[in-house]
Simulated assay, not measured.
Amino acid sequence: MNPFSRSWNALLSAVAELSDEDFGRPSGCAGWLVRDLVCHLVIDAQDVLITLATPADTAPTRDAVSYWQIVPEPTGEDPLDALTVRLAAAYQDPRLLLFHLDDVGSAAGRAAGLADPAAPVSTQDQVLTAGDYLTAYVLECTLHHLDLQAQLPKVPPPPAEGLGRSRELLEAIAGAPFPAAFSDRDALLLGTGRRTPDPEQAAGLRTMGAQVPFSIG
């Protein structure tokens, strides 16, 4: 559970330090402002709470890697993405959004700490252990922490442990390791298309023999 807890708590702490002006700046998620990203984190926290409170009575069908699937490149037309933007705008005062994330996010963190790693839980019509589910969410936390940093260099980076574990997960999803010369941060940003590679990096990605960059969901 520790990698999730550290990554999640670091992300919540980083959001808590944002100024009101920061909420109107672009995030690393295409088409989303920081306020939209933070609203998405509220939904993430709700997902964690719901999943950990939904025990399953069947064997796991997914693990921390197969939980993720390669999905089409976001177009901004997904109904849930559009709903997130509308919800974020409805808060108006960024402090209300911060309060909601702190409230629900802290509860999600506590639930994760109390969960039995071996217990099967259900989410999105799939079953996996609570430990695998929270391990998978390290990647979610870390990528969104990088999204938060994209236009806000004052935001502290994600924990090194979370970056390393997220790289391992992304390599397993891709079915190939990233070039050793790539830092964990570069591997995540380039592998998910959050950063355009320079010629040397593009050559390194081609050596992987996998379709990268890609979107996961």
Rank of each mutant, 00 (worst) to 15 (best):
T84P: 04
R86E: 12
R86L: 09
R86C: 02
L87T: 05
L87K: 07
L87E: 10
A88I: 00
A89L: 09
A90D: 13
Q92Y: 11
Q92S: 10
Q92A: 13
D93W: 07
R95A: 05
R95C: 01
R95S: 05
L98W: 01
L98Y: 00
L98G: 03
F99E: 09
H100V: 11
L101W: 00
L101Y: 00
L101F: 01
D102V: 03
V104C: 08
V104W: 07
V104K: 07
S106C: 03
S106A: 08
A107S: 13
A107E: 14
G109H: 03
R110C: 07
R110A: 11
A111N: 06
A111E: 09
A111M: 06
A112H: 07
G113M: 01
G113L: 02
G113V: 03
P117I: 11
A118M: 07
A118Y: 04
V121C: 15
V121G: 07
S122C: 13
T123Y: 14
T123M: 11
T123N: 14
T123E: 12
Q124V: 10
Q124F: 12
D125K: 11
D125G: 10
Q126N: 15
V127Y: 14
T129H: 09
T129M: 11
A130E: 14
A130S: 15
G131C: 12
Y133W: 15
Y133M: 13
T135E: 14
T135P: 10
Y137W: 14
V138A: 07
V138W: 02
L139V: 03
L139K: 05
L139Y: 05
L139G: 02
E140T: 07
C141V: 07
L143D: 02
L143E: 02
L143I: 11
H144N: 04
H144M: 01
H144V: 00
H145A: 02
H145R: 06
H145W: 05
H145E: 03
H145C: 05
H145L: 04
L146A: 08
L146T: 02
D147K: 04
L148E: 00
L148K: 04
Q149G: 09
Q149Y: 04
Q149R: 14
Q151E: 12
Q151H: 15
P153S: 06
P153R: 01
K154M: 10
K154H: 14
V155T: 06
P156C: 11
P156S: 11
P156I: 09
P156A: 12
P157K: 05
P157G: 11
P157I: 04
P158G: 11
P159W: 06
P159G: 09
P159T: 10
A160D: 15
A160E: 15
A160V: 14
